[in-house]
Write a protein that binds this DNA or RNA. Structure first.
Length: 584
RNA sequence: GGUCCUGUGGUGCAGUUUGGAGUGCACGCCGCCCUGUCAAGGCGGAGGCCGCGGGUUCAAAUCCCGUCAGGACCGCCA
């Protein structure tokens, strides 16, 4: 059907007779000569229909997005008509035959890359949106990431194994999508939130290095970085510790980054403890593309007379470079934001030049001693023209409030600042107290405690660190993993702490615990989100831009109209009855 | 469940603050002209439930209430 692809022809093809196929991107009809820009996935090629060439009269009818098959000879463009802005700009195709393969109505929106089109319209006609260069680019980035990840895992001796989509519902975690069973009316399958339990069974089954690019489904509200269904590189390793998992996973993500952003990818993934990430960046997913770290001012205010900071567990500051002349309106907005985030208040100070000396100016500065004022400037490294923000209170609130303000004020756009991968390690085992005063697991109940912290399990459970870890890229959580508990007595101890009794254990995880009676190897694993990784690598701040057919924020698909009501006979067959008339 | 933002010819916007005729810009579409353009150009034309419903008013795209759709976020996402 074709001998070449339009976007691949170059000046070296001069004189070659070719046949190309594609869509009409632009038509420039000069009355005599007619120019067509023919587009396919490889790019654009200018087709010239000279006047008087027999059999090409059809070109007058041709419109945007018609599909053509054009034959002719590649020729250099005449002097002065070369187009430097396109890769095929030195040549053109002098058509001598033209076949209309398919006609098109005018598209409902322009397919130029420039146009910023309403997203519902794009999704309703996604097949047209996919023709546009950004979507072509993003989905090809995605394919390259998948290929690089697979190659990296295969090269490291991992075995790709699929796990089922129709599984038993497990009561923990996110809300399940469920599928009614026809053969067992009243019973339901769940769609997997992740292959978590199955991959641990694979370890018991002797596949010591498993991976899968797995589809995961969670029925929770959607966000810019969350869809109902998403893809994860899921992996698990036997006879391996945390360092082994981090190393194997690093190879895969760095290979993916190198494949699509050659030269931008670092040689290694940085590492930081959870505690340090919270202390310095106020987040368990620190964005390391910029500094603006949180600085401890506990010593400066150790003996302060300033009431707001007296007796505070934590006083920290943030120096916002160059924001010193922010209007009162803007600054008040920051105070309001801090309060919404849970802070009791926010102290702000402008750094101004007074007789050549950097001096703090603020409504509260009169309550501070001279050493305190100098200490703030000195410790924060504040300069004339900066804005200083101080918060105090509990450690957790103080760091998280300042951490959010840091992002609000300093975070670069998604496509800038390079690629800063970081492992966040030593997460706490439990995240606060849940119902009944029991600690609740920060990761999941099979997470191995940190080897140095077993003694704290009974005395101070909330201080126990775990062998759980997150992978973070530019402030996005890509994924998490852990070393799993494989010893029965440790698992029983954790279940006891969590308040999960024997019945609960059997009901929720019975088959896994059963399997663990038969020689479970020590194992550890990880999973990271392909959609998020691809989005960042493609410079998109929304994963819908890297998914061929995504859903809207309310979980609908404007193209297929999913979800739809189903036929009453279908309901009957499944043993289901509608309780109330659904809306619309 | 909640907060905030958006909705105006096919597309992207302006108009809404301060109510006064569907007013404007760019693109697209249709017709005519045009032999070197490249987002071609020139002339002409068609195309509107101002998301939907209600209210206030002599008068509503504009003000108020409700509702629908979309987006960002909080909750949620072990």
């Amino acid at each position: 059907m074709r001998t070449h692809r339009p976007g691949e022809l170059r000046s070296g093809d001069d004189g070659t007779r070719v046949t190309v196929c594609g869509w009409v991107a632009h038509r420039r009809d000069h009355g005599g000569v007619v120019f067509l820009d023919l587009r396919d996935a490889t790019g654009l090629l200018q087709v010239v229909v000279d006047p008087g060439v027999a059999g090409l009269e059809d070109v007058r009818r041709v419109r945007s997005e018609w599909v053509l098959r054009v034959s002719g000879v590649v020729r250099p463009r005449p002097a002065g008509t070369v187009n430097d802005s396109m890769p095929t700009g030195e040549i053109e195709l002098g058509a001598d035959s033209l076949e209309v393969l398919s006609e098109s109505e005018p598209p409902p929106f322009p397919l130029d890359e420039r146009a910023d089109i309403d997203e519902v319209l794009r999704l309703r006609h996604r097949y047209l949106d996919l023709r546009r260069e950004p979507m072509q680019r993003n989905l090809r980035v995605r394919a390259a990431v998948n290929a690089a990840v697979r190659a990296a895992m295969d090269a490291q001796g991992f075995c790709e194994i699929e796990t089922p989509m129709l599984i038993a519902s497990t009561p923990e975690g996110a809300r399940d999508f469920v599928v009614p069973s026809r053969l067992h009316p009243g019973s339901f399958y769940a769609l997997p939130q992740s292959p978590q339990l199955f991959k641990q069974l694979l370890m018991v089954g002797g596949f010591d290095r498993y991976y899968q690019i797995a589809r995961c489904l969670r029925d929770e509200d959607l966000r810019a970085d969350r869809q109902f269904e998403f893809m994860q590189l899921d992996l698990e390793m036997s006879f391996a510790d945390q360092a082994d998992v981090l190393a194997a996973t690093s190879v895969a993500v760095l290979a993916a980054a190198e494949a699509v952003r050659p030269g931008d990818a670092p040689d290694a993934v940085a590492q930081i403890t959870w505690r340090e990430a919270m202390d310095r960046f106020g987040s368990d997913k620190p964005d390391l593309r910029f500094g603006m770290e949180l600085i401890d001012l506990g010593e400066v205010f150790a003996a302060t007379e300033f009431r707001a900071f007296q007796g505070a567990a934590c006083v920290k500051g943030l120096c916002v470079s160059g924001h010193g002349e922010s209007s009162r309106n803007v600054v008040d907005g920051l105070v309001e934001r801090a309060k919404q985030l849970g802070a009791a208040g926010l102290v702000w100070m402008r750094v101004r030049d007074v007789d050549g000396v950097a001096t703090l100016e603020s409504p509260v500065v009169k309550f501070l001693s001279e050493p305190e004022r100098l200490g703030i400037i000195d410790t924060l490294g504040a300069k004339v023209g900066d804005l200083v923000l101080l918060a105090s209170g509990s450690w957790a609130t103080t760091v998280s409030v300042l951490g959010q303000l840091r992002l609000d004020l300093g975070r670069p756009p998604v496509s800038e600042g390079g690629l800063h991968f970081v492992w966040v390690v030593d997460f706490p085992l439990f995240e606060g107290l849940g119902e009944g005063g029991r600690p609740s697991p920060a990761h999941h109940p099979f997470t191995m405690p940190h080897p140095d912290d077993f003694d704290l399990l009974d005395s101070d459970p909330l201080a126990v660190r775990s062998q759980a870890y997150d992978l973070v890229l530019n402030g996005w959580e890509l994924g998490s993993g852990s070393v799993r508990i494989h010893r029965r007595e440790v698992q029983q101890r954790i279940f006891a702490l969590l308040g999960i009794d024997e019945d609960d254990q059997q009901r929720k995880f019975g088959f896994l615990l059963d399997a663990f009676r038969f020689g479970p190897p020590p194992h550890a694993g990880f999973a990271f989100g392909i959609d998020r990784l691809v989005a960042i690598l493609a410079g998109e701040d929304n994963i819908r831009e890297v998914i061929a057919f995504p859903k809207t924020q309310s979980g609908t698909d404007p193209l297929t109209n999913a979800p739809t009501p189903i036929d009453p006979t279908q309901l009957r067959e499944l043993g289901l009855a509608m309780r109330a008339t659904p809306k619309s």
